[in-house]
Amino acid sequence: MEKYLKKCLLDFSNYKTVDTKEKYRINANESPFNPGENPILKKYFKEVIENFNFNLYPDSSAKSLRTELSNYLSVGPEDIICTNGADELINLIILTFVEPGDKIIVHSPSFEMYEISSTINYGEVIKIPDLKNYIVDSQSIIDAAKKNKAKLIFLCNPNNPTGYLIPDEEINKIISETDSIVVIDEAYVEFSEKEEVGLLNDRTIIIRTLSKLFGLAALRIGYGIGNPEIISALNKVKPPYNLNGLTQELATVLLRNRENILSQIDFFKTERSRMISELRKLDYLTVYDSNTNFILIKIKDEYKSIILENFKKNSILVKVYENKPELENCIRISLSDKNINDLVIKSLSIGEYYE
C-alpha cells in the first residue's frame, strides 16, 4: 500500500481521539449543558425534527443559518461561510490558498489540526515556540513570516491548549507587519473578555464554532468570517451540501433563541475562577490562567502517576499530553458542572481519594 500513498503520509500521524469508558468526560472541552434538555429549545428542536424534509438536499449556502449568525455577530451574511465543523474550514483555507511548499506559521503548542491539514496538503509548517508561561511570541511570528514569505499564519485565540488570549494590539501588529493571510481561530472566544469580531480585511479570516459554548459538538458546525472576497474564494473549494440540513435548521433555531445559551457564560467564568483559585493552593501544580472553558495544569513529575490514578479511580477522563516536550507533565481539564468540578479538585488533591 505504501507505494500508492502520498509521500507526505508515509510518516504521518493523524489527530487521535480516545474511546470513552469513563463516567465523566472532561478531555475534549465539550459543554456540560445539553441544549436539547433546555425546555424552550427542546420544544423548538422537536418542531424542527417533526417538520423536516429528510428526502431533500440541504441548502448548499446555509442561507438561513448565515442570516442568524450575521444577527449574532453584527456582520453581513456575505461575510460568513458555514462548514462541517471548524476542522473542515481549516482544511478549506489551506486548500484555497496553499500551494505545495508554501510556508505556514503556527505558534506552539496549539491546535494540532493546523499542522495536520497543512501536511496533508503539502504545506510546510514552521512552528514558533511560545515564550515562558505559554505567552505567544508575536514578534518571532512576524520575523518568521517575513523571512519565509509565509502564505498563512494561524493564531489560536484564545489558544488551545494553553488558554492564553493574544492582545488585540499584537494581532493587529502581526496583520500590519506581514504580508500573510492571518487566520484567527476563535473557537473559545465566548468564554473570554473579547466580544466583538476583530478586524476584517482582505488578509484576515476568523474561525468560530457552535461546538463549545453553544453545546452543538455532535452536530459539527463551524463557520468562517471574512470579507466577501475571501468568502467567495473559500466557496470555490467548498463541497456542495457540506453541512446537513437538519444541523442547519437546529442551529438556526438555537441562534434565534441564543439568550438561553449566552446566559451560561457567567457560570463558566465563575467556575473557572473558583477552580483556578482552589487548585493554586496545591503547590505541586502549576495552574495557568485561562480565557476558555478549560484549564491547563502542569504537575510536578513525582505526583503525576498518583494524580492520574485518582482520575482513573473516580472515572474521569482528562486530556493527558504524552510525547509532547512543550507540554511535559501537563494535563488539560474541561470545565463541567459544579459537582464534577469539585470531584476534579479532589482528584488533584494528593492523599485524598473520594468515592
Rank of each mutant, 00 (worst) to 15 (best):
A28D: 13
V75S: 02
K43V: 11
Y134L: 03
L92C: 11
N235W: 03
I307R: 06
Y188H: 12
E328K: 13
G123I: 05
I276S: 05
K147V: 13
V75F: 00
Q248S: 01
L335C: 03
M113V: 13
Y15F: 13
D289T: 02
E170A: 05
E177F: 11
I345K: 07
S13N: 11
D289Q: 04
N310K: 08
I340L: 11
L92Q: 09
I307W: 07
N71V: 08
F154S: 01
Y24L: 10
T209C: 03
L155F: 09
S305F: 12
N242W: 02
K151V: 06
N159F: 04
F154R: 00
I94G: 06
S74E: 10
D179R: 10
E22H: 13
A150D: 01
Y188E: 15
D342Y: 15
D185V: 11
V75A: 05
L348A: 00
T83C: 09
N133V: 03
L285P: 08
I80Y: 02
L92W: 06
N310V: 01
E115T: 15
G101R: 01
L10H: 10
N38W: 08
I306F: 14
N242Y: 05
I297F: 03
N329T: 08
L255E: 12
I221G: 07
I128R: 01
N34S: 09
I174F: 02
K324H: 10
P161G: 03
Q264N: 14
Y241R: 00
N244P: 13
E278V: 11
K132N: 13
I93Y: 10
P109E: 02
F45P: 01
D79N: 15
N157Y: 05
P32I: 05
L155V: 09
L92R: 04
N172A: 10
G224Y: 00
L89M: 09
L41S: 00
L308S: 04
Q264D: 15
N291H: 15
L296S: 12
N148D: 09
N55V: 07
V183Q: 04
S334I: 00
Y321Q: 00
K281M: 12
F294C: 14
L210S: 03
E309F: 07
T204A: 02
E22I: 08
S349R: 06
V318K: 04
T96Q: 05
L285Y: 04
K149P: 01
S305E: 12
N160I: 13
I49S: 07
N133M: 14
V287D: 04
L5M: 12
N159P: 07
L308R: 04
I153W: 01
F214T: 06
E78C: 09
N244G: 02
E193L: 11
I230R: 05
V48N: 00
Y321T: 01
S347E: 03
N71H: 10
V237M: 09
F12K: 05
K281F: 06
R332V: 13
D342G: 09
I333A: 04
K16C: 12
L246D: 03
N14Q: 11
R274E: 10
V136Q: 07
F12T: 00
V75W: 07
M275R: 02
S74C: 14
F294Y: 05
E50Y: 10
F154N: 04
E309Y: 08
P35D: 06
I116F: 02
S334K: 03
K212W: 11
I153H: 01
I181H: 02
